[in-house]
Design a protein around this nucleic acid. Sequence first.
DNA 1: GTAACGCTGTGAATTATTTCACGGAACATA
DNA 2: TATGTTCCGTGAAATAATTCACAGCGTTAC
Lengths: 214, 214
Amino acid sequence: MNKAISDKVIGRLGQYRRLLGRLAEEGARFVFSHDLASMARVTAAQVRRDLMVLGASGNPAKGYSVSGLLEDIEAFLDAPDGQNVALVGVGNLGRALLAFFAGRSTKLRIVAAFDANPEKTGRVIHGCRCYGMDALEAEIQREAVTVGVIAVPADAAQEIAEHLIETGIRGLLNFAPVRLSVPANVYVEDIDMTVSMERVAYMARQNAVSLEKL
Amino acid sequence: MNKAISDKVIGRLGQYRRLLGRLAEEGARFVFSHDLASMARVTAAQVRRDLMVLGASGNPAKGYSVSGLLEDIEAFLDAPDGQNVALVGVGNLGRALLAFFAGRSTKLRIVAAFDANPEKTGRVIHGCRCYGMDALEAEIQREAVTVGVIAVPADAAQEIAEHLIETGIRGLLNFAPVRLSVPANVYVEDIDMTVSMERVAYMARQNAVSLEKL
DNA sequence: GTAACGCTGTGAATTATTTCACGGAACATA
DNA sequence: TATGTTCCGTGAAATAATTCACAGCGTTAC
Ligand SMILES: NC(=O)c1ccc[n+]([C@@H]2O[C@H](COP(=O)([O-])OP(=O)(O)OC[C@H]3O[C@@H](n4cnc5c(N)ncnc54)[C@H](O)[C@@H]3O)[C@@H](O)[C@H]2O)c1
Ligand SMILES: NC(=O)c1ccc[n+]([C@@H]2O[C@H](COP(=O)([O-])OP(=O)(O)OC[C@H]3O[C@@H](n4cnc5c(N)ncnc54)[C@H](O)[C@@H]3O)[C@@H](O)[C@H]2O)c1
């Protein structure tokens, strides 16, 4: 196996893809590593190193082909036939996520949502059908879902994660403020807004203080 | 100045605080670094190293005092009188955030929300008053807001960021999928759910593939 | 009182990530 | 065709983050 690629690199490739998409819309045909770098707020060397994993190559005089690079990143990041996503927890956050991801990408589709509360189920929300928990396994297997999003309260998250993993899901995006216990072959990414908010508050304070000291 | 503390450490301290809060509720009086470590999914050495920045110290036979550590982390992370937060963009995500953070902490309070759409303003949402953009500066200064949350569409985010920074805000939590240009004395934390989702999808695929190879 | 235990605090080692820096290549220009 | 310029690709160096490993100590048991 080619030596594992760090999650940081994967994240930046996603960024570059988005920037390249914008450049393509603006009609740019070529882009230099330092252009991409300044847009992504990283160094040019970082960009070039990240792009190495693609095997993509640029041209010293013109830079990288925007469309070529887009294709290369897509070939690298996306599954050829796309991947299906299931959301569990159709509360305030879950509904915002459904609204946001609806129709956003053909490669990553939220194809089903689940909730324990019967008031939330049986409906179609932002184009996504919402099921009760008893339908979870069958629906996930029917749609060949490979990614789960957890947007239930913290005390339900571990149980839901286990349920999703049992159905064969190997990647979880977890919004609940708990660290999930999962086998080594399952990837979990936590989005912990409380921690982020606290960190921003701390850093804001440091910046304010250091200003005073000047 | 004491050598800058990395944002990773700040984030983990926030985690430890949350875990310690749960332990305290359960009545635990002491905790070992390896307990905290297994709950936070890090190593015991990492926990001890992180706690070094607090100057807090534990006892070889009993571990750390749960309440003592909580106090130490609070003294370190929180502003003594708390900090006020402003939210810009009362859309799907903004409303979810208002619901979530309402009354959650006395140290970090979302005290005002702003939106350009007159339909969103003039109301109180989850206990938070919602203003038009013309009230932004006055309200932020009146409430001495130090942290801004950006939940507007991507093409408005840079402008909003600049506006917030003009009013004196030094920390931003940005949900819009753009990298903001800000002066060096402003801390920006991006929460980029699209990138996170793509990364989880990629990693899920790797795990699925590596399974096949076993 | 004291011996045994198991943990903390931390310098040193290790590993991960980023940046430097330079040879070589593609293009533009004359 | 020759020459200059600028940027790419990447080994090596630097920096950041994590883990190792162990001296030293507080507690408990006896
Ligand atoms: N709303 C936010 O902006 C926000 C921010 C940060 C973190 N979070 C986290 O995201 C999660 C969801 O937040 P929310 O604001 O949407 O909460 P919410 O209460 O609005 O929604 C939770 C949903 O989960 C469902 N649910 C509860 N238990 C369940 C179970 N066992 N199985 C299936 N469904 C179940 C509920 O019926 C409800 O629809 C929470 O863990 C919260 O901490 C939310
Ligand atoms: N909804 C999600 O789950 C989600 C997920 C990931 C990222 N995001 C990002 O968060 C941001 C908000 O998402 P959303 O789903 O809430 O969008 P939304 O369209 O529901 O809400 C955007 C809000 O911003 C307001 N607004 C627009 N322009 C403004 C301006 N110039 N000044 C002040 N207010 C303005 C609109 O009136 C609206 O209320 C977007 O950048 C989106 O990409 C959202």
